[in-house]
Design a binder for these strands. Structure first.
Lengths: 155, 155
DNA sequence: TTATTTGCAAAAACTTTGCATACGG
DNA sequence: CCGTATGCAAAGTTTTTGCAAATAA
């Protein structure tokens, strides 16, 4: 099975603590946005986050969603995920991991593989990098789902 | 030295042939856009391509640049490059290669490394992929330039 | 000649900003 | 209370589209 985010969703109380820990005021809007992010693994765009929360929280504006996501990225609570479409998508999982981009559905799936991470790190360590500090290494796997109705799994 | 696109720029006549070969009509606008792409290695956005060509070709509109880039991507003459900013950037180099994203300058550098490609391919072959066909494997290295005035090199 | 491509402008999609109000710490 | 965050609307970006005119094949 593909390991998406490994951890279980955390409670609203724990989100509150996490926000504070990262230097952010724990507002209702931020709790809601964070909760939506942790419950979906589809690396949503701002618009998609807005749609996810809107029926339960009609007063939260799209501008607030954008601002909230930006503040999360700045606080390093989430990251922007690489994408080929020209829009920002976000990743709740801040552990080093890889991504599988499904080109027939535009879905992005987390692929957690510490062994692969080690291999890459070791390989690049051998190379002489001049004038560069590496911050992150990630493999981007572009793939196609053969049967959209069946499950996807790795090993 | 980092290997950017390995090949030398090709002549306008050769671009013409290439366009035809890929099923695209060889219009002046397309020749100009392709030529601009092959001469820069900075993975430009549509806007940047427009700026690059505009002084010599003031009659080519930004809409045409967008349409041209789209038609190139569709014809598989170029690819969209992954980016964290929410806009499309393009890559003239269609050979399998990796990218180094310089987070302090927003530049994207090609990193051509067939050995790394082999290691990755072999590693993933060992994994049991169910219901997926892999189209592309690429490593995305996020790095910071230590001294912006000095050259960057790998091995 | 004919289907495709272009230029232009307008619309759509995506994102940021300014300012008065609300609210967490 | 104080300063940050929000809501809203408006402005700014980025990208797409529709249509008449131009042009490659």
């Amino acid at each position: 099975m593909i390991q998406n985010s490994i951890s279980q969703p955390i409670s609203l109380e724990e989100i509150k603590n996490k926000l504070t820990e990262y230097g952010l005021k724990a507002t209702h809007q931020r709790l809601v946005v964070y909760d939506a992010l942790q419950k979906t693994h589809l690396h949503p765009s701002a618009e998609e986050v807005y749609t996810l929360i809107h029926s339960d929280n009609p007063s939260i504006s799209i501008a607030t969603v954008y601002n909230t996501l930006d503040s999360f990225v700045e606080a390093k609570l989430i990251t922007r995920v690489l994408s080929e479409e020209g829009k920002s998508r976000y990743d709740f999982n801040t552990h080093q991991h890889h991504h599988i981009y499904l080109c027939n559905t535009d879905e992005i799936i987390d692929y957690h593989d510490p062994e692969l991470q080690k291999i890459l790190t070791a390989y690049l360590k051998k190379k002489k990098l001049t004038n560069l500090t590496i911050h992150e290494l990630q493999v981007h796997i572009k793939a196609e789902v053969i049967n959209p109705k069946q499950k996807i799994s790795i090993q």
